[in-house]
Each structure stands twice: as C-alpha cells, then as structure tokens.
C-alpha cells in the first residue's frame, strides 16, 4: 500500500494535524513504508478467528450511581489555557 500526497493531507486533516508543506514528502514516504510493513499481515489466514480487543476477555464492571466527584473547578481550570466566568474559551463555534 503506497500513499500519495493527497492521502497524507486527508489523514492529517482528519487527525487535525498541521503538517508543514516541506515535510509532506517525508511523511508520505514514512507512512508508506510503515503501511508496507503492516501489509505483511494480509498474508495471514485469519478465517473466522474472533478479534481480540482485550487480552483478558474480561467483562465490564459496574459503578454504583453515587456522586464521588465534588466540584473541583478551580483546581481543574488552573491548568487551562483560557478561562472566563468558569467557561473554557475557544474561537467562535459556528453551527
């Protein structure tokens, strides 16, 4: 599997990564070689093998519906880049 420039641009957009114009050829080449490595697995015959998402095949545990997290806004927003009136600020959201 070999990627071209437009593939890389599309993926970078989906992942919201700004990639420097000059770096695109290197990314294209690197990603293509990684995908070539990955493509080795297409030779494996996996037939009807069930996919393994979690190594222990365990099941979800449930949490009691009780409030354990009190208001910690001050502490949590101390590390925020832009806050006003308790809100996180971002460039205007347009619907």
């Amino acid at each position: 599997m070999s990627l071209d420039r437009s593939d890389v641009e599309r993926i970078a957009h989906l992942a919201r990564l700004q990639i420097d114009e000059n770096d695109i050829p290197a990314y294209t080449e690197n990603l293509s070689s990684i995908l070539n490595l990955i493509d080795q697995m297409q030779q494996a015959d996996t037939g009807n093998v069930a996919p393994l998402a979690n190594p222990l095949d365990a099941v979800q545990r449930l949490r009691a519906d009780e409030v354990t997290e009190p208001n910690q806004r001050e502490q949590l927003q101390a590390v925020a880049p832009a806050v006003e009136d308790g809100l996180f600020l971002v460039p205007k959201v347009i619907e």
Binding site: L87, F88, L89, P91, K92
Partner: peptide, 10 residues
C-alpha cells in the same frame, strides 16, 4: 461574546 470567543461548559 467573550471577546469574539465561545465559552464551553462541560
């Protein structure tokens, strides 16, 4: 309007 920004309440 927060100086041209939106505020996020989670």
């Amino acid at each position: 309007d927060y100086h041209g920004m939106s505020g996020i309440d989670l």
